[in-house]
Amino acid sequence: MDDRIRARCDCFYQVLSDYIDGELSEEEAGLVREHLLLCPPCLVYLEQFRIVHQACGKVESDDLPADFDVVMQGVMTAWRKDRCGDPEPGS
């Protein structure tokens, strides 16, 4: 890919995800930055790609249901019942 990253939008596009994820070598990342200095459309494209990337990364925002612990206990109860036919040990 080498120097074409600096000169061609299609080559820039091909390494865009790798650039955002920090997967490129320092030399390749430098070529991407040089391309961006010369190419306003690709700069806008990069920013849009970043927003997409951030939207996918909203892992911590999952709000668990209020009864989540009850749901998890339900799994354990169903497992006990399957094994022993007794939903509550000792009952």
Partner: peptide
């Protein structure tokens, strides 16, 4: 892209970074 590797259409407009945009995404 065209044969020289440039965008055929270069009219990308910046998105606002707000909740509406994230919801569309």
């Amino acid at each position: 892209f065209n044969a020289k590797g440039a965008w055929k259409h270069m009219n990308f407009a910046p998105w606002r970074e707000d909740e509406e945009t994230l919801q569309v995404v």
